[in-house]
Design a protein around this nucleic acid. Structure first.
Length: 545
RNA sequence: UCCCCGAUAGCUCAGCUGGUAGAGCAGCGGACUGUUAAUCCGCGUGUCCCUGGUUCGAGUCCAGGUCGGGGAGCCA
């Protein structure tokens, strides 16, 4: 738990406007608008393949202003209200139209032999004419030239229009395009030191796919609540783009780590018959004639079965908690990865956890150090420390330390957020706290043979106040002991029959842990709140978008 | 469930001890051949969250409600 001086942006944080997002140029639901009499070299063969959806009537070459059914085309930006923004598909056979569009694009490419490239690889095409497909991120102008910032999901490039290089119609039109207008740009890649990317595009031609108006996320500040309402668009912003790419890298690193280490991915079920641990509040769902089922709060028990089958196994999936927690580190739906290993002790579990976390963090640094610094303003020196071994202290030592530091903690209490932060702040990398009072832990933890008062469990606390990112430990492998615990915890023995079978048929010592993906991403990125670490956050009072 | 804070223009906010609201940005029109949240000139914008109360008069004070933000407990 955490309640610390938030490292990242504060509660009232503002976030930038523009956006980013991958995906190819597709799903075009609006007829393209084209510059009249385009650049001589790059004439638009405004010839659609025999328009199957002839309803559009847009098969004529270069109409001055074509009116289709429900769709008006405007050669300039003057008549935007009529520009069909609000009825994209009206009167269109969308499928046919899309097909035409894609076919159409193919014709252009073939006819002009222009490579269609992603912006991130623009450097490979210096001096060449290329085609980019994307969205207008922002624009500026200065009299006789316009600067269009175009993004395609891979990066942003500045496309420069000189008045003398394009038709007057196109030049005027370009100045009126709204943010997030989808477009295709053709031009020459040029090296330029003034560009963040190192390259610019000298524009020869712009083809508008759909003209966007009044995009809600402007290049100015917005509140978090507003941005969360527009999460589906907020994903396009450069900040969100970095965060979700780091999440992607972390998820890939998780899979790579376990894959390289001989683990088998075994997916755990989402519907479960009862509370696995008997602790948290779960989401109930009706389940045919069998009464109620619950959304999983952990795949661990199933991973114990998997570990007995595969030796080393892990699951990686969503987890659900119905607790009414309104904090910056809680979601009702979050992702957790849970490895479980046969013949593994608590000590080895801690070694696995520190190797695992270090691997993830170093992988993120390899791939995203520049973005972490430039966009998220993360102090990466604190991440570079994250290498084994991690400091380890027992719960009892932690309590003693807190008491010396003047906290009213006593043995048997769980740590509050403040205490966790105080502990974590003593170290320059994650700290492992182990051997908690047995009573605080779930029934399946093995108790320490040297001191039955404590369970062989461990938590990994992230630095800088991010709190618990891993919880795990060694499981009870003795059947009689386990049966006894299930009874004492008042859990339904029936539901654990299969679980006890794991002890009946070839039981072995085993251990594992669970790592919360969102908290890990929040820590690595230095974010204030976990809601930014998942594409569409589910929280107590938010289920849309 | 409990505690604290907030709600004013499309967005972000200001609005003092009560006198019927105003900045920046966005939008629109114009200027500018190197802009980087471009700049400069001009234009428009309001159920001041809702209901009731106090008052000559409420954005402002009071009560209740709604919605949002943060925290506690619990967890990853």
């Amino acid at each position: 738990m955490v309640a610390p001086p938030p490292p990242g942006p504060q509660a009232g944080e503002r976030v930038e406007g523009p956006h980013l997002r991958p995906t190819g140029a597709q799903a075009v639901c609006q007829l393209p608008l084209r510059a009249q009499a385009p650049h001589p070299v790059h004439l638009h063969p405004d010839v659609h393949p025999p328009a199957g959806g002839g309803a559009q009537g847009v098969t004529h070459p270069r109409p001055p202003a074509v009116q289709g059914e429900g769709v008006d085309l405007h050669p300039d930006g003057g008549a935007r209200k009529a520009n069909g923004l609000h009825h994209p598909g009206k009167g269109l056979g969308a499928t046919v139209e899309q097909a035409d569009r894609l076919h159409d694009l193919g014709v252009y490419r073939a006819a002009m032999s222009l490579p269609v490239i992603r912006i991130a690889e623009a450097g490979k095409y210096e001096g060449q004419d290329v085609e980019l497909r994307g969205w207008l991120y922002n624009k500026r102008s200065s009299g006789k030239l316009h600067f269009l910032q175009v993004r395609d999901g891979s990066a942003i490039i500045q496309a420069v229009l000189f008045k003398g290089d394009v038709t007057p119609e196109l030049f005027e039109r370009a100045d009126k395009l709204g943010q997030e207008t989808s477009l295709i740009v053709r031009g020459t890649v040029k090296a330029d030191r003034r560009s963040a990317l190192g390259f610019e595009l000298g524009v020869k031609d712009v083809q508008v796919i759909q003209e966007a108006r009044d995009y809600p996320i402007t290049p100015k500040e917005h509140g978090v609540a507003y941005l969360m309402e527009h999460r589906h668009l907020w994903l396009r912003s450069s900040r969100q783009h970095v965060i979700l790419r780091v999440r992607h890298t972390i998820e890939k690193a998780i899979r790579d780590f376990f894959d390289q280490d001989g683990f088998t991915l075994v997916d755990a079920p989402i519907f479960t018959p009862a509370a696995c641990e008997g602790t948290s509040t779960l989401f109930e769902v009706p389940y045919f004639d069998m009464g109620k089922a619950y959304l999983t709060q952990s795949g661990q028990l199933y991973m114990e079965a998997a570990a007995m089958a595969f030796g080393k196994a892990y699951c990686f999936g969503p987890t659900f908690r119905a607790e009414k927690s309104k904090t910056r580190r809680h979601l009702t739906e979050f992702w957790m990865v849970e490895p479980e290993v046969a013949f593994m002790s608590l000590e080895e579990d801690m070694v696995l956890a520190e190797r695992f976390i270090s691997f993830i963090v170093q992988r993120v640094l390899e791939k995203h150090e520049k973005e972490l610094v430039d966009v998220l303003e993360r102090d990466v020196s604190k991440l570079k420390n994250v290498v084994p071994p991690f400091p380890r202290i027992t719960y009892t030592e932690a309590i003693e330390y807190l008491q010396k530091a003047g906290h009213p903690a006593k043995w048997g209490d769980d740590f509050g957020g403040d205490e966790e932060t105080v502990l974590a702040n003593q170290f320059d990398r994650p700290v492992i706290v182990h051997r908690y009072p047995a009573e605080m832990k779930a029934f399946y933890f093995r108790h320490d043979p040297a001191n039955p008062q404590v369970a062989l469990g461990m938590d990994v606390l992230a630095p800088e106040g991010y709190g618990e990112i891993i919880g795990g430990g060694e499981r009870e492998s003795d059947m009689a002991t386990l049966e006894d615990r299930i009874q004492k915890h008042n859990l339904p023995m029936d539901a654990f029959k299969w679980y006890l079978d794991l002890r009946r048929y070839g039981t072995v010592p085993h251990a594992g842990f669970g790592l919360g993906v969102e908290r890990t991403v929040a820590w690595v990125c230095g974010l204030h709140h976990v809601r930014e670490t998942i594409p569409f956050a589910r929280m107590m009072e938010r289920i849309t978008p």
